[in-house]
């Protein structure tokens, strides 16, 4: 048998003991399942409703990824523009900070008003909540290019775009990929939030329905599904980051 690496063993052990303590506590203090169901009850509910759970998780995953995809594209573009030009940086930054300060949950009703109940408001919420860190990070990476390095290329007659392409963008990639880790989590939060406020699909919607029907174990099964999805998405971003900017982690 191969020995598993410690970064697998320790988190697994910790998670399992957490569930064990939870289980023991529920049994020994006779906590009613309508207040806090034991992990075994949650697992059972999860198994019984597995197809509903999987279907809704797929919807949530899909809206998250679409919103995140748009955020990545827009964030990269906007970050590159802002980072490359001091004037645009000064003009756009305050507006963006203002926009970012608005709690996105307050925008969801507006989006539903415009686009109706469905996946579109969730996708847009995921996008709106997650593009800001990408913009900031890409812009920072570009704006902090060493002046000497810029001079080396400028003295060779390089155009502004060449300097951005050869130095600025590759240089800002570690910032970009590390912002993706933050953005994917935010996008996830955004889509679930929108699903909870007004949607007919997704884990957020499922949990709201289960809560209305007092199916407390299913509510918790939904929470668990969200946690698992969140970890998977984050891990995917870490792998992407390592793959593309290995040079920054030596």
């Amino acid at each position: 048998m191969n020995r598993l690496p410690t970064y697998v063993v320790w988190p697994a052990l910790f998670t399992l003991s957490l569930f064990a303590i939870w289980e023991i506590a529920c049994v020994s203090f006779a906590i009613p399942p309508s207040f806090l169901p034991a992990p075994s009850t949650i697992a059972e509910a999860g198994w019984n409703f597995r197809s509903t759970l999987i279907d809704n998780s797929a919807v949530t995953l899909w809206t998250t990824l679409v919103g995140f995809g748009i955020a990545t594209f827009v964030g990269l573009l906007l970050g590159a523009i802002i980072g490359a030009s001091r004037g645009l940086y000064e003009a756009l930054y305050p507006v963006m900070i203002g926009f970012n300060s608005i709690p996105k949950v307050a925008i969801v009703p507006v989006l539903i008003l415009w686009f109706g109940v469905g996946s579109l408001p969730a996708v847009l919420t995921a996008f709106l909540i997650s593009f800001f860190p990408i913009v900031v990070n890409v812009a920072t990476g570009l704006a902090t290019t060493e002046p000497e390095l810029r001079d080396v290329l400028r003295a060779l007659g390089a155009t502004r775009w060449e300097i951005i392409r050869k130095i600025g963008l590759p240089r800002s990639m570690p910032y970009f990929f590390s912002s993706l880790k933050v953005a994917i989590t935010l996008a996830f939060v955004g889509s679930v939030m929108a699903e909870t406020v007004g949607s007919n699909k997704g884990v957020g919607h499922l949990m709201l329905s289960a809560q209305a029907a007092f199916q407390v174990p299913l509510v918790f099964a939904g929470l668990l599904a969200l946690a698992i999805l969140g970890i998977v998405l984050y891990a995917a971003m870490v792998i992407v980051e390592r793959r593309f900017t290995g040079w920054a982690y030596r």
């Binding site: 000497e148 001079d151 400028r154 060779l156 007659g157 590759p170 240089r171 040079w247």
Partner: peptide
């Protein structure tokens, strides 16, 4: 009148591109 193209420059910091 502008950047020369036929110059090479080096500074105190090597400024190599880490990637």
């Amino acid at each position: 009148a502008g950047p020369l193209k036929s110059v090479g420059m080096a500074f105190q910091a090597a400024n190599l591109l880490p990637w």
